[in-house]
Design a protein around this nucleic acid. Sequence first.
DNA 1: TGAATTTATTTACCTAGCTAAATAAATACT
DNA 2: AGTATTTATTTAGCTAGGTAAATAAATTCA
Lengths: 132, 132
Amino acid sequence: MNPIFHALFQKSRYLTNCLNEVLKQHNLYSSQWAILYCLHNHGPMTLTQIWKYLNVEAPSITRAITRLETLGWVLRIDGEDKREKIVALSPYAKEHLPAITKTILAFEEEMVGSLTVEEQQQFIILLEKMKG
Amino acid sequence: MNPIFHALFQKSRYLTNCLNEVLKQHNLYSSQWAILYCLHNHGPMTLTQIWKYLNVEAPSITRAITRLETLGWVLRIDGEDKREKIVALSPYAKEHLPAITKTILAFEEEMVGSLTVEEQQQFIILLEKMKG
DNA sequence: TGAATTTATTTACCTAGCTAAATAAATACT
DNA sequence: AGTATTTATTTAGCTAGGTAAATAAATTCA
């Protein structure tokens, strides 16, 4: 396997594992955090908006939202268009998000801090350059 | 979420999906390919050697090897040390690997070819720099 | 308006990683 | 030699992604 792919996949796995480790203290998984963060920034969203934004398929989001709902992090509200469900943060989530955000920012700083801002930009540029 | 993480995770998912798509014609998944390639380069290996090399946990490899065995790609042989199982490519795998390797090389070239060699090196350096 | 098509979500089931604990063989210790 | 510890593999069960197909509401169009 191409060393670039090998390195990329491995770092990706490594970072999600680290992220999950850090999120344990808040009883969250990284995928759940991604959704909460998304809702925090955009306000209530439909399922479709969420999966399009996060760039994953719809069933993954359905499952994650169901879990987040039973855990009390989000509410599912019927939209005007009766096909769609609107997902919103619960009061519980709104209360706890600042602390979680703080944890995450510290983690990200630790992980990415060894790169200069230019290196970070360069990294993203190189990532985007890779495609067909 | 930090844009670097977002971009990294997304590209990683995207590339494995592409890889799976390309491997469909050989009835393989990317994780299976990783193991076959590993055995192709190193010759027969124990399970522990494989998971340490690929940097995943043992149970993932056990499952993948079991599947590869029932599909006829690999053989599991008892080692001298009766605890360990040695995994080797089957004649079927040896016969088909060249064609698969060709497919993969073309795919990798397509994905990574838009980066110069220096950019590829730079990319790996930046990846490794990211840690705690 | 009624049928056909599109769109949003869900369900079922697959790969692919993880941890924790079980099993079995090898090694170390006294 | 016999017990305790370590090591290799497996099993069970979790998150997290994917596809394909089902369902139900909205939209299009003849």
